[in-house]
Design a protein around this nucleic acid. Structure first.
Lengths: 135, 135
DNA sequence: TTTCTTGCAAAACATTTGCAAATCG
DNA sequence: CGATTTGCAAATGTTTTGCAAGAAA
């Protein structure tokens, strides 16, 4: 169905890793996990593949707060929340109220096309444990 | 009042540039504008100063979608919207509805501490002009 | 003098690119 | 064959770091 290119071995392996991960891995994470599985793809190939998969809509690229992009196989519309204590990234599915978006469109004069929200907070597990350092 | 360090010449010059800018400059932008003003600070110094100013709460660091951080002298709580056609970054002041945040806290189990929202859309000027390329 | 800052250059990353070789259809 | 993709290494761009020299308290 897809016009150009195909799910090569490399792309499939990378898609599987992102799909099977629940922690929104970075490109480095992906490379690391590929190594564990015995694959040893070039950096360029991994980035190429991640871009390809993103362009095909099979995964999403997330720019959360760190330096490296993370990848997410859940492509449905959703947002993210990052734990400030343990660094975990979770999904947020509650959609923003339409009238708030309307208000913003009016305030700014923009025709809004897309939104990326990143929440920060303390996750349930970290609320319980009294640890207060990252890591 | 501030405990450590002070507003040195370099830091003041950089703060002035960020404060006087309406376009959320990147570190490179700042360095460029410093040069125009006859300053020629080291890269390290500019980054150090930006971090210092951020830590002091005098400016805010924004991680919008590009690669480089942008800096914003408006430190009041607000969000941003990026024009997908011309790349302009504007402010969004409409606060998210409290009950939506409550809903998210319930859904995720997190104690929300902070939010960063980035909207994308077409700005008023670009809506009018029929241009459809970036830049 | 003790502490903080600067300047400079090198290092550290994340990511992209160029090009030849390999692979796919 | 012709188009795409890979591997590799080098280049790019952003940001950090180490360290000696300079400025400030």
């Amino acid at each position: 169905m897809t016009r150009k290119g195909h799910l090569t071995v490399q792309r499939k392996a990378i898609l599987d890793i992102v799909s099977g991960a629940s922690d929104h891995p970075t490109a480095s994470d992906v490379i690391e996990r590929l190594k564990i599985q015995g694959f040893n793809f070039a950096y360029g190939t991994v980035y190429n593949s991640l871009r390809y998969l993103t362009d095909e809509g099979l995964i999403r690229e997330l720019k959360l707060d760190g330096d490296a992009s993370r990848y997410d196989a859940r492509v449905e519309e959703h947002q993210h929340i990052v734990c400030v204590k343990c660094g975990k990234v979770d999904e947020v599915f509650a959609a923003p109220p339409a009238d708030w978006l309307t208000q913003i469109a009016e305030e700014t004069g923009y025709a809004i096309e897309d939104q990326h929200f990143v929440f920060k907070g303390v996750c349930a597990a970290c609320k319980t444990s009294k640890r207060n350092t990252l890591q």
